[in-house]
Amino acid sequence: MHLAYPAVLSALLFCTGLYGVLARRNAILVLMSVELMLNAVNLNLVAFDVWLAEAAEDTLHSGQALTLFTIAIAAAEIGIGLAIVLAVYRARGTSDVDRLRETAERGHPDGTGGSGADAGDPDGAGRNAADRTEAAA
Protein backbone atom coordinates (compact mmCIF):
# COMPACT_ATOMS: atom_id res chain seq x y z
CA MET A 1 0.00 0.00 0.00
CA HIS A 2 1.19 3.46 -0.77
CA LEU A 3 2.27 5.13 2.46
CA ALA A 4 0.75 8.41 1.32
CA TYR A 5 -2.80 7.13 1.81
CA PRO A 6 -2.69 6.77 5.59
CA ALA A 7 -0.40 9.76 5.95
CA VAL A 8 -2.71 12.07 3.99
CA LEU A 9 -5.79 10.74 5.76
CA SER A 10 -4.09 11.32 9.08
CA ALA A 11 -3.14 14.88 8.14
CA LEU A 12 -6.69 15.67 7.03
CA LEU A 13 -8.19 14.19 10.17
CA PHE A 14 -5.79 16.18 12.29
CA CYS A 15 -6.77 19.41 10.56
CA THR A 16 -10.45 18.55 10.96
CA GLY A 17 -9.88 18.19 14.68
CA LEU A 18 -7.90 21.42 14.67
CA TYR A 19 -10.83 23.26 13.12
CA GLY A 20 -13.16 21.76 15.71
CA VAL A 21 -10.95 22.85 18.59
CA LEU A 22 -10.75 26.38 17.24
CA ALA A 23 -14.35 26.83 16.16
CA ARG A 24 -16.47 25.05 18.74
CA ARG A 25 -17.90 26.73 21.79
CA ASN A 26 -19.16 23.82 23.85
CA ALA A 27 -16.33 22.37 25.91
CA ILE A 28 -17.45 18.80 25.24
CA LEU A 29 -17.34 19.39 21.48
CA VAL A 30 -13.83 20.71 21.93
CA LEU A 31 -12.96 17.47 23.71
CA MET A 32 -14.41 15.49 20.81
CA SER A 33 -12.20 17.42 18.39
CA VAL A 34 -9.18 16.68 20.56
CA GLU A 35 -10.09 13.01 20.29
CA LEU A 36 -10.09 13.34 16.51
CA MET A 37 -6.61 14.85 16.58
CA LEU A 38 -5.32 12.08 18.83
CA ASN A 39 -6.78 9.49 16.50
CA ALA A 40 -5.06 11.07 13.53
CA VAL A 41 -1.77 10.75 15.36
CA ASN A 42 -2.58 7.12 16.15
CA LEU A 43 -3.20 6.34 12.50
CA ASN A 44 0.13 7.88 11.62
CA LEU A 45 1.90 5.84 14.27
CA VAL A 46 0.35 2.58 13.14
CA ALA A 47 1.03 3.18 9.47
CA PHE A 48 4.66 4.06 10.00
CA ASP A 49 5.10 1.18 12.39
CA VAL A 50 3.83 -1.29 9.82
CA TRP A 51 6.08 0.27 7.21
CA LEU A 52 9.19 0.24 9.41
CA ALA A 53 8.57 -3.30 10.60
CA GLU A 54 9.05 -4.46 7.01
CA ALA A 55 11.52 -1.90 5.77
CA ALA A 56 13.82 -1.50 8.76
CA GLU A 57 13.24 -4.88 10.41
CA ASP A 58 11.96 -3.11 13.48
CA THR A 59 10.97 -5.69 16.07
CA LEU A 60 10.38 -3.27 18.91
CA HIS A 61 7.11 -2.06 17.36
CA SER A 62 7.49 1.39 18.79
CA GLY A 63 4.57 2.76 16.83
CA GLN A 64 2.04 0.25 18.04
CA ALA A 65 3.22 0.46 21.63
CA LEU A 66 3.02 4.23 21.50
CA THR A 67 -0.45 3.95 19.95
CA LEU A 68 -1.61 1.87 22.90
CA PHE A 69 -0.11 4.42 25.26
CA THR A 70 -1.81 7.24 23.39
CA ILE A 71 -5.15 5.49 23.62
CA ALA A 72 -4.75 5.00 27.37
CA ILE A 73 -3.68 8.59 27.88
CA ALA A 74 -6.61 9.77 25.77
CA ALA A 75 -8.97 7.81 27.99
CA ALA A 76 -7.43 9.41 31.07
CA GLU A 77 -7.61 12.82 29.39
CA ILE A 78 -11.26 12.46 28.55
CA GLY A 79 -12.06 11.39 32.10
CA ILE A 80 -10.25 14.33 33.68
CA GLY A 81 -11.56 16.72 31.04
CA LEU A 82 -15.16 15.73 31.56
CA ALA A 83 -14.75 15.96 35.32
CA ILE A 84 -13.43 19.50 34.92
CA VAL A 85 -16.23 20.41 32.51
CA LEU A 86 -18.84 19.08 34.93
CA ALA A 87 -17.27 20.94 37.83
CA VAL A 88 -17.21 24.15 35.81
CA TYR A 89 -20.78 23.58 34.71
CA ARG A 90 -21.87 23.03 38.28
CA ALA A 91 -20.15 26.20 39.41
CA ARG A 92 -20.92 28.49 36.49
CA GLY A 93 -24.01 27.03 34.92
CA THR A 94 -22.45 26.88 31.47
CA SER A 95 -19.97 24.77 29.54
CA ASP A 96 -19.46 27.43 26.90
CA VAL A 97 -15.77 28.14 26.58
CA ASP A 98 -16.44 31.63 25.24
CA ARG A 99 -18.20 32.65 28.43
CA LEU A 100 -15.61 31.38 30.85
CA ARG A 101 -13.42 34.45 30.88
CA GLU A 102 -12.65 34.90 34.55
CA THR A 103 -8.96 34.45 33.95
CA ALA A 104 -8.87 36.75 30.96
CA GLU A 105 -6.68 39.78 31.28
CA ARG A 106 -9.56 42.22 31.00
CA GLY A 107 -12.83 40.64 31.98
CA HIS A 108 -16.04 41.24 30.09
CA PRO A 109 -18.99 40.60 32.34
CA ASP A 110 -21.33 39.65 29.52
CA GLY A 111 -18.79 37.34 28.00
CA THR A 112 -19.94 38.06 24.48
CA GLY A 113 -17.57 40.89 23.74
CA GLY A 114 -14.97 40.30 21.12
CA SER A 115 -12.82 42.99 19.65
CA GLY A 116 -15.72 45.41 19.80
CA ALA A 117 -15.87 45.21 23.58
CA ASP A 118 -12.13 45.61 23.76
CA ALA A 119 -12.42 49.06 22.28
CA GLY A 120 -14.56 50.29 25.13
CA ASP A 121 -12.75 48.35 27.76
CA PRO A 122 -10.00 50.72 28.89
CA ASP A 123 -12.75 53.08 29.98
CA GLY A 124 -14.35 50.35 32.06
CA ALA A 125 -11.06 49.27 33.54
CA GLY A 126 -10.28 52.84 34.49
CA ARG A 127 -13.69 53.18 36.09
CA ASN A 128 -13.15 50.03 38.08
CA ALA A 129 -9.77 51.28 39.23
CA ALA A 130 -11.38 54.56 40.24
CA ASP A 131 -14.03 52.68 42.19
CA ARG A 132 -11.39 50.69 43.93
CA THR A 133 -9.45 53.76 44.97
CA GLU A 134 -12.67 55.34 46.20
CA ALA A 135 -13.46 52.28 48.26
CA ALA A 136 -9.95 52.28 49.65
CA ALA A 137 -10.27 55.94 50.58
Binding site: L18, L22, A23, R24, R25, V97
Partner: peptide, 10 residues
Amino acid sequence: ADSENRWVGL
Protein backbone atom coordinates in the same frame (compact mmCIF):
# COMPACT_ATOMS: atom_id res chain seq x y z
CA ALA B 1 -22.56 25.76 18.58
CA ASP B 2 -19.79 27.47 16.63
CA SER B 3 -17.89 30.44 17.88
CA GLU B 4 -17.79 33.78 16.04
CA ASN B 5 -14.23 33.29 14.92
CA ARG B 6 -14.90 30.04 13.14
CA TRP B 7 -13.65 31.53 9.89
CA VAL B 8 -10.27 32.19 11.47
CA GLY B 9 -10.26 28.59 12.64
CA LEU B 10 -11.24 27.43 9.18
